[in-house]
């Protein structure tokens, strides 16, 4: 019998194995998130919102309260919850299309209003659920279903630098970072800090997680990791972009 890797306590055992494609990075992001929730011991206070796209498959993932919303609209739903119930820890979980395209106005405005929520955005360079179209994060020259000859930046612009954008428009209390599923421990730390920032009521917190999509990239395990660790991280710099200013001791 194969050994089952230890699950975070906040995961819902009944809904495992999860519904993401084999090799998908969502499971790893959600593992890091589950551990962060466990370590902060906030399972009974979390309200988790997930978007449309692959992120919707997280709708029954945790033993926390979850609402699955519309494409791009998880941010406003979580803002609505947080404004009505400031004692809840609200997490808006979305993909790159949901956050940077159809829901960009919500992300931008939640950030500028410094909403005390945590937004987590999974960047896998394409629209996964709908079959691999170009996303705001598709790399230059990268082939997708709607850029079959490769993304032409003259035609379609350059990939969105999300955390950098959010960092530029937020105030001192905000937290912004980019992690990757290739470094789950670091990603977990970023997520934990982002949640901690909400717990402390400092400001908007945002973590982008670089993630693989072998189904739509048509890559095997090795090529998936190579693309993630070489191509993606070359363009999308991993690390903290903005951390709240430390108060003087």
């Amino acid at each position: 019998m194969a050994t089952v890797p230890k699950m975070p306590k906040s995961w819902r055992v009944e809904t495992k194995p999860h519904k993401f494609c084999p090799g998908c990075g969502h499971g790893l992001v959600l593992k890091a998130l589950g551990e962060a929730i466990d370590e902060l011991d906030i399972q009974d206070r979390v309200v988790f919102g997930c978007d449309i796209g692959c992120s919707l498959l997280a709708w029954d993932f945790f033993n926390v309260d979850i609402v699955q919303t519309h494409h791009g609209r998880t941010t406003p739903v979580m803002v609505g919850v947080k404004r009505a119930r400031p004692d809840r820890i609200c997490i808006a979980y979305m993909g790159d299309g949901g956050g940077y395209a159809i829901g960009a106005q919500h992300l931008v405005n939640a950030a500028t209003r410094n909403e005390k929520i945590t937004a987590i955005l999974v960047n896998n360079c394409n629209y996964g659920m709908t079959g691999g179209q170009m996303a705001p994060t598709t790399l230059p020259e990268m082939k997708t279903e709607t850029t079959p000859y490769g993304r032409d930046v003259e035609e379609t612009g350059y990939p969105t630098q999300g955390p950098e954008m959010v960092a530029a428009i937020t105030r001192e209390g905000a937290y912004t970072a980019r992690g990757t599923v290739a470094k789950v421990r670091q990603l977990k730390n970023y997520l934990k800090k982002a949640l901690q920032n909400q717990l402390e009521g400092k400001g908007f917190s945002f973590v982008e997680a670089l993630s693989g999509c072998p189904t739509n990239w048509s890559t095997n395990a090795k090529a998936t990791w190579a693309f993630l660790e070489e191509n993606m991280t070359k363009y999308f710099k991993v690390g903290e972009v903005k951390v709240p200013v430390k108060e003087e001791e």
């Binding site: 919303t69 609505g80 919850v81 404004r83 009505a84 106005q105 919500h106």
Partner: peptide, 26 residues
């Protein structure tokens, strides 16, 4: 009582949904 001015009516609609889901007469 509270008020939030949102970025558009899409957001006004969805934040209202959020407020109701949180248990408030929104």
């Amino acid at each position: 009582r509270k008020f939030l001015q949102t970025e558009d009516e899409i957001s006004a609609g969805f934040t209202t949904c959020g407020g109701v889901l949180a248990g408030k007469r929104a």
